[in-house]
Structure formats: C-alpha cells, structure tokens
Amino acid sequence: MITNGSRVEQPAMNETSAPVLAVEDLTVEVPVDRIWRPVVEQVSFSVRKGETLGLVGESGSGKTMTSLAVMGLLSRNSARIAHGSIRLTGQELVGAGRRQLDQLRGDRIAMIFQEPMTSLNPSMKIGEQIVEAVRRHRPVSRAEARRRAVEVLDLVGVPSAASRVNSYPHEFSGGMRQRAMIAMSLACDPDVLIADEPTTALDVTIQAQILDLLRQMRDELGLALLFITHSMGVVADICDRVAVMYHGQVVEQADADDLFERPRHPYTEGLLRAMPTLVVREGRLPLIPGRPPQATMRPTGCAFSPRCPYRIAACTEVPPALFSTGDTGVTRCIRPGLPLQGAT
C-alpha cells in the first residue's frame, strides 16, 4: 500500500484560483534554555477566497503559534520565524517590518480570539474600538468611522446597533462580545480572517450561532477563513479543508469530506474517534491515550509514534516525510495505506 503514496515536499495546490493566504514551509522556534527549538515545523497550507481551512490539533500542537506567526503577533523575545514564507495575496509577510505589518493587520488580514470576555478593551466603548480599527486603515472622518461601526455591528447581528456602539464590553454578553469582535475584525473588509477557537468559551447554543455567523460572513464577503480549533465537530460544521497538526507539524491535510470518511494518519483517526457527537466539548480531546511529547523535545522518528497503535519499527527510526494521498491530500505517515476508520 505504501507504493501508491509518493514523496512530495509541499501539498499539491489546486490552480483554479490563486490562494489569498499561502503559508509555505513555516518553522517557528522558541528559546528553551537559551537555545532556539522548533515548535512549528515545515508547516504549509493555503486558503482561497470563500474557503475555510480548519487547523486542528490538541493544545500545544502549534496551531495557535502558527496563527500568531501569520498575524506577525509572535512576541519578539519569546518566538521567531526561523524560515518559511507567508504570502498574503502574493505579498511576503516573513521579514516585513512592524510598520508594514501594522498596515496589513486589521485591514487585509484580521483575527478573532478564543476569549470574547477578555479580548475587548474593558475601558473603551465597543464603538470606539471599531472606530479605532477603521480610522487606522481608512482616511475617514470620525463620524464616518462611527457609521461604519454601526453598520458592521448590525451586519453581525448585534440588535439595535446604533445605540449599542456606546456600550462598554462589560455590558455585553459573551456571545454578543464575540459578535462585536467579529464586527471589529470585519470593519475594514479583510481578505483573510483567522478565527482562533472562537466558540470554545461559549455556551453550546451560542457556539452554533457564531459558527452560522462566520459561515454567513465568509460566503457574503468572500473571506478566506482560517479556522483554528481542537474540535472535529466544529471542523465538520464549517471547514472545507482540514490540516491536522501534531507536535508542530501538519500530519495530514485533506478535503474535509475525504478526511472524515477516510483518515490517512493514525492521529486523525484518533481525533475522529474522540469526537463524541457533533456537540462541541470544552477542553482537550479526551480519548487519545498518552500525552503529546513536550513541544520542544522531538522523539526520533515519527512524533506520534509513542502513542500510535499502528507503530512499526521503522516509525521510530526516521521522521516521516509527507506522502500525497489522492488529489489534494497529504499525510505524514510512512504507512499511508492503513485501513483507518473514519467518522460514521
């Protein structure tokens, strides 16, 4: 079975439309005892207009690090991009200066976060926070920016937006705050929206509403959506393509339907099995036994091999390369032909 997988260095790309965001061979390092060690390694993916890519993995798998690297939000002393390329509509972001990144952030590329309760500045009115984003990137008057704030708040379904712009975050519920965050991120009509676990901290019913909203915004505004989550249930709900991360690497990437039907990496199988229902559960994925290795300590061979039930001797010897599976998929497993079980 191994024979039908051929070695590739990068995931195959569909040429129908150029990707809005293309990450190639990205490696991010953090200092451990004064030595830089990789926590994100050779990660490649791309997102097209109107498409949702899910970046899935356990906490510590490097998915948030990856998203922060894309946003240029890694703090200078505690992380660095060692190599790789991040292109936003063709423009290279790796190595760009702070000023250049500031001009792109909030304008061409925006991000929303896990904790709507703490992601908004408590001492600034909601409207002011949106106005700030608008005026930073558009040469408009304060009144015009305010109108835009009301408009986007209305767009994301905040009721009576015209008066709610004057509210402070503490006067909003969790779900409303996440809507406000989304409004703020969409204020300048970005090409790419990164959503880092945007529903994890919310009640189940609110989660569904926010997912609906994001899907709607993606379709209406033609966003390229990079959706970061630990939940396969959420992935099933919103993603077109999925990149599964483990220990800083993408271990499998495929169209969502294919991945759910026929996972090619044992870790993906584990994630799918850990999915109790489509109801999102908070916290870690409960069912994969063992712990991920410490982010900065790489076992020889395949990083997942210590936890892998299909491990053979070869797995612990050489780190596996990416094997392409079918049209667009890749897996980082030397046994890509394993009869793994999908979600049913």
Partner: peptide
C-alpha cells in the same frame, strides 16, 4: 484498531 487503542 480498537484493541490496539485499549492496549495503549
């Protein structure tokens, strides 16, 4: 697959 997971 199940047996393998249980062992682990």
């Amino acid at each position: 697959g199940d047996a393998a997971w249980e062992r682990l």
